[in-house]
Write a protein that binds this DNA or RNA. Structure first.
Length: 292
DNA sequence: CTCCTATCCTGCGAGC
DNA sequence: TGCTCGCAGGATAGGA
């Protein structure tokens, strides 16, 4: 489901549902219904350490959700098909088991309901970060030391996501620009849909080798990436009143994509036909008139 | 190094 | 109708 805008929409929805702007909220119980998703899930002994912790806030870094509690951090990555939903009024995991849906994997109990993580393809991640000896690690320290985060590039709105830096990083590289901007070490948050959308808006062909791009083309890529992600977040915020709607299938496909998934249809700005070229094993949509 | 492929999974729609 | 095939929004290990 998720590229950056969707993860950010989920983050905001979770904060709203848990009322984190007014309060912290106590975790009463955490249960995993299977041993692993893409990676091993925390052992019951470790999960038990979350009991009694209060969630203070939820951060997003790249496509990860990072939950901050009194003394700990735990994270969730939604993979391709992960979703959290709120089950109002659910009182305990034992009762939940009787109404559990297929692919419900993780259950977090609160006083007035529960959060449930559902993920059919199980490419997601749920992990408790290593507990340091200090009272609690700083967020910045988590980002720079955790194996989940330390290799990640800048957020799309950081100053290091700039035409100047990109020009430098692209020097001598043969890789296609679409694969380059989907590389989370270069910039985080851009996935297969928004890569096509950003490059269409920037008028750059997805298969262009990065070493051939001029600084002004990088400038357009930076601007249009930021713009398309920002617009998608705003749309998520305006059309999705509750993050739970996402897993009912609303939200994501409501976004109006200009090229993604529109192979053979007319380009929205020149009426040429939208192309689909496979790059790095992923479908890449573009217009041969508008993009150079 | 750099770049590309295969792979982890399930579900769904197209085509026969 | 029912089957098979290909493809799906991510990320990474391994090979060329």
């Amino acid at each position: 489901m998720p590229e950056l805008p969707e993860v950010e929409t989920v983050r905001r929805g979770l904060e709203r549902t848990l009322k984190l702007s007014d309060q912290s909220i106590e975790i009463q119980d955490v249960v995993c219904f299977r041993k692993n998703l893409r990676t091993d899930l925390p052992r019951p002994q470790l999960l038990k350490k979350l009991e009694g912790e209060h969630i203070v806030s939820i951060h997003r870094r790249a496509k990860y959700l990072l939950f901050e509690t009194d003394r700990m951090f735990f994270l969730s990555h939604l993979g391709m098909t992960g979703a959290w939903r709120w089950v109002a009024g659910m009182k305990d995991a034992k009762h939940f088991r009787s109404i559990k849906q297929t692919h419900d994997h993780i259950y977090i109990q609160f006083a007035e309901g529960a959060l449930v993580y559902n993920d059919p393809r199980r490419f997601g991640i749920f992990d408790i970060l290593k507990i340091s000896s200090k009272p609690k690690e700083e967020l910045a320290s988590v980002y720079s030391h955790s194996p989940y985060f330390q290799h990640l590039g800048p957020e799309p709105w950081d100053e290091d996501f700039s035409s100047k830096v990109l020009l430098e990083k692209a020097k001598g590289k043969e890789v296609a620009v679409k694969n380059f901007i989907m590389n989370q070490e270069i910039v985080v948050g851009i996935g297969n849909i928004y890569a096509s959308e950003a490059l269409f808006r920037a008028a750059v062909r997805p298969q262009r080798k990065v070493k051939t791009l001029k600084q002004e083309e990088w400038q357009r890529i930076v601007q249009e990436s930021q713009a398309v992600l920002q617009e998608a977040i705003l749309k998520g915020g305006s059309t999705i009143s509750d993050f739970a709607h996402i897993d009912e299938g609303h939200g994501y496909f409501q976004h109006s994509f200009k090229v993604y998934g529109r192979e053979g249809e007319s380009c929205v700005s020149c009426s040429g036909k939208v192309q689909n070229t496979v790059l790095g094993g992923r479908s890449s949509y573009w217009c041969r008139n508008c993009q150079k």
